[in-house]
Simulated assay, not measured.
Amino acid sequence: MASVTAPLRLAFRASDRPEALEALERLSSLYPSVPVAEADVIVALGGDGFMLETLHRTLDRPVAVYGMNRGSVGFLMNDYAEECLPERIAAAGRACIHPLQMDARSEEADLTSALAINEVSLLRQTRQSAKLRILVDGQIRLDELSCDGCMLATPAGSTAYNLSAHGPIIPLDAQVLALTPISAFRPRRWRGALLSHRARVRFEVLEADKRPVSAVADSVEVRGVKAVEVYERRDIALTMLFDAGRSFEERVLAEQFTA
């Protein structure tokens, strides 16, 4: 006797944009749904920011997320369509991503830890440029970087803030991280580096009293940091689903040939 595959249990989440809330109402009337805690797949309705928020909510219970674009930016989302949604999800390809751990120590010696799916960035807080020392695996690689900031980006985040700062686009399976300066002043010719995903990066803030710096891991910000360590959490895996023929890998490749 052939085995019968149980239907996927779907949960719907929407951002606060009117078009996302309208889509939530429509899809909830068309397809049965369950609470998020019981779902096999979460259908996220919104933009890329809402996708990141939804992925953060799955950290304590890994569950696949299928996004549909009802926001302004939809690089991480599938096209919105109401027809045959369970079939689309069942045929979708999977993209597994690993977040970055940020351990930021402030001027008061407090330690704040957070996870970042896109990037961890250090940014100047005042008109004064930031001065950073950068160590990779305990070895000083840049003794002093004068800049607006610097970031370490994941492959999934390489097409976001990292790309706008002229960092490289990274295929999801490349197992590298992008270390990208933001408006570097000195050294003038340094454009960043590609690091192994196993690398541990430490940023030390120089002249912290005169040139305060904040550290941001996605939506978590710590102001007045003195040192920040960043490394990949390979023990945490988050799953996004993409329509057949529209894989995340294909989108990343196509983005590199966009004028």
Rank of each mutant, 00 (worst) to 15 (best):
A6D: 11
R13Y: 04
A14S: 11
P18D: 12
E19Q: 11
E19R: 04
L21G: 03
A23D: 03
A23G: 10
E25L: 13
E25A: 14
Y31V: 00
Y31E: 04
P32C: 07
P35I: 07
A37S: 14
E38F: 10
A39M: 04
V41K: 04
V41E: 00
I42F: 02
A44S: 15
L45R: 03
R57L: 11
R57T: 12
R61A: 15
V63L: 06
G67L: 08
G67V: 09
G71L: 06
G71M: 01
G74M: 09
L76V: 03
N78S: 08
A81Y: 00
E83C: 07
C84S: 11
L85T: 02
E87G: 03
E87D: 11
A92H: 00
G93R: 09
L100F: 10
L100S: 00
E107T: 09
E108D: 15
E108S: 14
E108Y: 13
T112G: 06
S113F: 09
S113R: 15
L115P: 02
A116I: 10
E119N: 09
V120K: 02
V120T: 07
S121I: 11
L122E: 05
Q128D: 02
Q128T: 01
S129T: 12
K131F: 11
L132D: 05
R133D: 00
R133C: 12
L135M: 15
L145Q: 03
C150I: 11
M151Q: 09
T154E: 12
P155E: 11
S158M: 01
A160T: 12
A160S: 14
Y161D: 08
L163H: 02
A165F: 05
I169W: 07
L172F: 05
D173F: 08
T180V: 14
T180H: 00
P181G: 12
I182V: 13
A184Q: 11
R188E: 08
W190R: 02
R191I: 13
A193T: 08
L195A: 13
R200W: 06
V201W: 08
D209F: 07
K210A: 15
A217C: 01
D218R: 03
R223V: 00
V228L: 06
E229H: 06
E232R: 15
R234Q: 08
A237N: 02
M240R: 08
L241F: 13
G245D: 04
R246L: 07
E249A: 14
E249G: 11
R251A: 12
L253W: 07
E255T: 13
A259G: 12
A259C: 08
